[in-house]
Protein backbone atom coordinates (compact mmCIF):
# COMPACT_ATOMS: atom_id res chain seq x y z
CA UNK A 1 0.00 0.00 0.00
CA UNK A 2 1.31 3.43 -0.88
CA UNK A 3 0.66 6.20 1.54
CA UNK A 4 1.42 9.77 0.72
CA UNK A 5 0.38 13.09 2.10
CA UNK A 6 -2.07 13.26 -0.77
CA UNK A 7 -4.02 10.38 0.77
CA UNK A 8 -7.33 11.91 1.46
CA UNK A 9 -9.99 10.72 3.80
CA UNK A 10 -7.45 9.31 6.21
CA UNK A 11 -7.24 10.81 9.62
CA UNK A 12 -3.95 11.42 11.29
CA UNK A 13 -4.80 8.73 13.85
CA UNK A 14 -5.23 6.10 11.12
CA UNK A 15 -1.91 7.02 9.68
CA UNK A 16 -0.04 6.98 12.95
CA UNK A 17 -1.68 3.73 13.93
CA UNK A 18 -0.47 2.16 10.73
CA UNK A 19 3.05 3.39 11.26
CA UNK A 20 2.90 1.96 14.74
CA UNK A 21 1.69 -1.39 13.39
CA UNK A 22 4.44 -1.66 10.84
CA UNK A 23 7.21 -0.61 13.18
CA UNK A 24 9.22 2.53 13.07
CA UNK A 25 12.47 1.57 11.39
CA UNK A 26 13.89 -1.05 9.07
CA UNK A 27 15.05 -3.13 12.04
CA UNK A 28 11.53 -3.42 13.40
CA UNK A 29 10.20 -4.17 9.96
CA UNK A 30 12.76 -6.92 9.47
CA UNK A 31 11.81 -8.48 12.78
CA UNK A 32 8.16 -8.25 11.87
CA UNK A 33 8.81 -10.19 8.65
CA UNK A 34 10.96 -12.73 10.45
CA UNK A 35 8.22 -13.40 12.98
CA UNK A 36 5.72 -13.73 10.15
CA UNK A 37 7.94 -16.21 8.26
CA UNK A 38 8.65 -18.26 11.38
CA UNK A 39 4.96 -18.45 12.21
CA UNK A 40 4.30 -19.62 8.67
CA UNK A 41 6.90 -22.40 8.92
CA UNK A 42 5.67 -23.46 12.33
CA UNK A 43 2.05 -23.70 11.26
CA UNK A 44 3.06 -25.58 8.12
CA UNK A 45 5.07 -28.10 10.17
CA UNK A 46 2.32 -28.51 12.74
CA UNK A 47 -0.29 -28.82 10.02
CA UNK A 48 1.65 -31.61 8.30
CA UNK A 49 2.05 -33.41 11.63
CA UNK A 50 -1.70 -33.27 12.27
CA UNK A 51 -2.67 -34.42 8.78
CA UNK A 52 -0.13 -37.23 8.87
CA UNK A 53 -1.27 -38.29 12.34
CA UNK A 54 -4.90 -38.46 11.25
CA UNK A 55 -4.44 -40.74 8.25
CA UNK A 56 -3.89 -44.11 9.89
CA UNK A 57 -6.53 -43.44 12.53
CA UNK A 58 -9.13 -42.56 9.91
CA UNK A 59 -8.33 -45.79 8.07
CA UNK A 60 -8.49 -47.96 11.20
CA UNK A 61 -11.11 -46.59 13.61
CA UNK A 62 -11.42 -49.80 15.62
CA UNK A 63 -7.68 -50.04 16.19
CA UNK A 64 -7.58 -46.39 17.21
CA UNK A 65 -10.43 -46.96 19.66
CA UNK A 66 -8.28 -49.70 21.17
CA UNK A 67 -5.40 -47.21 21.49
CA UNK A 68 -7.71 -44.70 23.20
CA UNK A 69 -8.88 -47.46 25.54
CA UNK A 70 -5.26 -48.36 26.31
CA UNK A 71 -4.65 -44.91 27.73
CA UNK A 72 -7.15 -45.86 30.46
CA UNK A 73 -8.08 -42.25 31.01
CA UNK A 74 -11.45 -41.71 29.34
CA UNK A 75 -14.64 -43.32 30.60
CA UNK A 76 -15.88 -46.20 28.41
CA UNK A 77 -18.77 -44.06 27.15
CA UNK A 78 -16.41 -41.59 25.47
CA UNK A 79 -13.90 -43.99 23.93
CA UNK A 80 -15.63 -44.70 20.63
CA UNK A 81 -16.78 -41.12 20.21
CA UNK A 82 -13.22 -39.90 20.72
CA UNK A 83 -11.90 -42.49 18.28
CA UNK A 84 -14.44 -41.39 15.67
CA UNK A 85 -14.08 -37.63 16.06
CA UNK A 86 -10.44 -37.02 16.96
CA UNK A 87 -8.86 -38.16 13.66
CA UNK A 88 -11.17 -35.96 11.58
CA UNK A 89 -10.54 -33.06 13.92
CA UNK A 90 -6.81 -33.56 13.45
CA UNK A 91 -7.22 -33.68 9.69
CA UNK A 92 -9.38 -30.57 9.53
CA UNK A 93 -7.16 -28.73 11.99
CA UNK A 94 -4.06 -29.70 10.00
CA UNK A 95 -5.64 -28.41 6.80
CA UNK A 96 -6.61 -25.14 8.49
CA UNK A 97 -3.01 -24.67 9.62
CA UNK A 98 -1.55 -25.51 6.22
CA UNK A 99 -4.01 -23.45 4.19
CA UNK A 100 -4.12 -20.55 6.63
CA UNK A 101 -7.82 -20.87 7.42
CA UNK A 102 -9.25 -19.76 10.77
CA UNK A 103 -5.73 -19.43 12.08
CA UNK A 104 -6.32 -18.02 15.56
CA UNK A 105 -8.88 -20.76 16.21
CA UNK A 106 -6.59 -23.43 14.77
CA UNK A 107 -3.69 -22.21 16.93
CA UNK A 108 -5.97 -22.26 19.95
CA UNK A 109 -7.25 -25.78 19.29
CA UNK A 110 -3.77 -27.15 18.45
CA UNK A 111 -2.45 -25.88 21.75
CA UNK A 112 -5.41 -27.27 23.63
CA UNK A 113 -5.16 -30.70 21.95
CA UNK A 114 -1.41 -31.01 22.33
CA UNK A 115 -1.54 -30.01 26.00
CA UNK A 116 -4.18 -32.72 26.48
CA UNK A 117 -2.15 -35.37 24.60
CA UNK A 118 1.02 -34.42 26.39
CA UNK A 119 -0.72 -34.50 29.76
CA UNK A 120 -2.20 -37.93 29.06
CA UNK A 121 1.16 -39.29 27.97
CA UNK A 122 2.95 -37.86 31.01
CA UNK A 123 0.23 -39.15 33.30
CA UNK A 124 0.61 -42.68 31.94
CA UNK A 125 4.39 -42.54 31.99
CA UNK A 126 4.24 -41.39 35.61
CA UNK A 127 1.96 -44.23 36.64
CA UNK A 128 4.21 -46.68 34.81
CA UNK A 129 1.69 -47.71 32.18
CA UNK A 130 3.53 -48.83 29.10
CA UNK A 131 1.33 -48.07 26.16
CA UNK A 132 1.76 -47.49 22.50
CA UNK A 133 0.87 -43.82 22.29
CA UNK A 134 -1.23 -44.45 19.17
CA UNK A 135 -0.02 -41.06 18.00
CA UNK A 136 0.70 -41.89 14.40
CA UNK A 137 -0.02 -45.54 13.95
CA UNK A 138 -2.81 -47.67 15.32
CA UNK A 139 -0.73 -50.84 15.42
CA UNK A 140 -0.62 -51.85 19.03
CA UNK A 141 2.30 -53.36 20.81
CA UNK A 142 4.24 -53.46 23.98
CA UNK A 143 6.94 -50.92 24.54
CA UNK A 144 9.93 -50.23 26.65
CA UNK A 145 10.55 -47.15 28.78
CA UNK A 146 12.82 -45.79 26.06
CA UNK A 147 9.99 -45.46 23.57
CA UNK A 148 7.73 -43.86 26.19
CA UNK A 149 10.53 -41.35 26.81
CA UNK A 150 10.80 -40.71 23.10
CA UNK A 151 7.05 -40.13 22.81
CA UNK A 152 7.17 -37.64 25.65
CA UNK A 153 10.07 -35.81 24.03
CA UNK A 154 8.45 -35.76 20.59
CA UNK A 155 5.04 -34.63 21.84
CA UNK A 156 6.79 -32.02 23.96
CA UNK A 157 8.39 -30.68 20.77
CA UNK A 158 5.03 -30.47 19.02
CA UNK A 159 3.58 -28.72 22.04
CA UNK A 160 6.36 -26.12 21.88
CA UNK A 161 5.49 -25.45 18.23
CA UNK A 162 1.83 -25.00 19.15
CA UNK A 163 2.71 -22.74 22.06
CA UNK A 164 4.78 -20.60 19.72
CA UNK A 165 1.81 -20.22 17.38
CA UNK A 166 -0.44 -19.49 20.31
CA UNK A 167 1.81 -16.73 21.55
CA UNK A 168 2.16 -15.41 18.00
CA UNK A 169 -1.58 -14.95 17.68
CA UNK A 170 -2.71 -14.21 21.17
CA UNK A 171 0.11 -12.81 23.23
CA UNK A 172 1.94 -10.46 20.88
CA UNK A 173 1.97 -6.79 21.74
CA UNK A 174 -0.63 -4.64 20.06
Amino acid sequence: MQHTHEDSGRSLTDYSREIHARGHGPEKKRRWYQAKALAFLVRLALGIVFVYASADKILNPAAFAQAVYNYQILPDLLINLTAIVLPWMELFLGLCLILGLWLPGAAFLSTFLLITFFGALLFNTARGLNIDCGCFSTTDGTLSDISMGWYVLRDGGFLLLALYLFSHFFLKKD
Partner: peptide, 16 residues
Protein backbone atom coordinates in the same frame (compact mmCIF):
# COMPACT_ATOMS: atom_id res chain seq x y z
CA UNK B 1 -9.97 -17.60 18.42
CA UNK B 2 -12.81 -18.91 20.54
CA UNK B 3 -15.46 -18.93 17.88
CA UNK B 4 -13.14 -20.32 15.24
CA UNK B 5 -12.11 -23.12 17.57
CA UNK B 6 -15.75 -23.85 18.22
CA UNK B 7 -16.40 -23.88 14.49
CA UNK B 8 -13.53 -26.29 13.82
CA UNK B 9 -14.84 -28.60 16.53
CA UNK B 10 -18.40 -28.48 15.24
CA UNK B 11 -17.37 -29.08 11.62
CA UNK B 12 -15.10 -31.99 12.65
CA UNK B 13 -17.69 -33.65 14.87
CA UNK B 14 -20.37 -33.40 12.20
CA UNK B 15 -18.07 -34.67 9.49
CA UNK B 16 -16.72 -37.51 11.63
Amino acid sequence: GFWQMGAIVIVSVTLA
